[in-house]
Amino acid sequence: MYKALRPGGRVIVSVEHPVITSNFASLAEGRRTAWLVDDYFKPGARVHRWLGCEVTKYHHTLEEYFDLFTNAGFAIERIRESCPNKDNFLSEEEYERRLRIPLFLFISASKLKG
């Protein structure tokens, strides 16, 4: 990404939040009711069933994402975590369930000017 951008160019990246990718054990029965964060500081592949298929997801800590960008020469502009909007849910119960943990991490970064 860095090479493809002009100086001052911006990139926005969305990834599954590291508290989600750390452990998929609480998904063994389908819908999560508990949010188990385990093996957070062990990066790497995690096998997971998603939409009926086995997929491999790669876990990284928030610090690793930060280092990937800054070591490549990007300046981090903003980091956001997905926070649900109550208006997007049909029930209070589902909204409250989604408030428990962020699902996504968003990173906005720019290529340093030459």
Rank of each mutant, 00 (worst) to 15 (best):
F69W: 00
K111H: 10
L68D: 03
H48V: 15
A109T: 14
L36K: 10
A45H: 03
T61D: 04
F24G: 10
T33E: 13
E77I: 12
A109R: 06
Y58F: 15
E63D: 06
Y2C: 11
V11L: 10
S108K: 10
G8F: 09
Y95P: 02
F24I: 07
D87H: 06
E54G: 07
H60T: 08
V37K: 03
Y40R: 09
K113A: 13
E94A: 08
L103Q: 10
E64D: 10
K3H: 12
G52H: 00
E96Y: 08
L103P: 03
S91K: 12
S91V: 14
A28G: 11
E92P: 00
D39G: 13
T33H: 06
L90M: 14
E64C: 05
T33V: 13
I20G: 06
W50P: 01
E63K: 02
C53N: 13
R80Q: 04
V15H: 01
A25I: 14
D67M: 06
W50G: 05
V13Q: 04
S14N: 12
D39S: 12
M1F: 10
K86W: 03
C83G: 14
V13I: 13
K113S: 12
R78W: 00
G52I: 01
T21S: 08
P84W: 03
R10S: 13
K111F: 08
S82P: 09
S108F: 07
R78A: 00
G114F: 15
A28W: 06
R97A: 01
R6G: 09
S82R: 00
E93Y: 05
L103F: 07
E16R: 01
P18C: 11
I12C: 03
K113P: 09
G52Q: 02
P102A: 04
F41P: 06
A72G: 09
G114P: 15
E81D: 09
G8M: 14
L99Y: 04
L27W: 13
E54R: 13
I107L: 08
I101M: 03
V37W: 01
L36C: 07
F69S: 02
V47M: 10
E63A: 04
I20L: 11
L27S: 10
L105T: 05
F104G: 12
A4H: 14
H59W: 04
F104H: 15
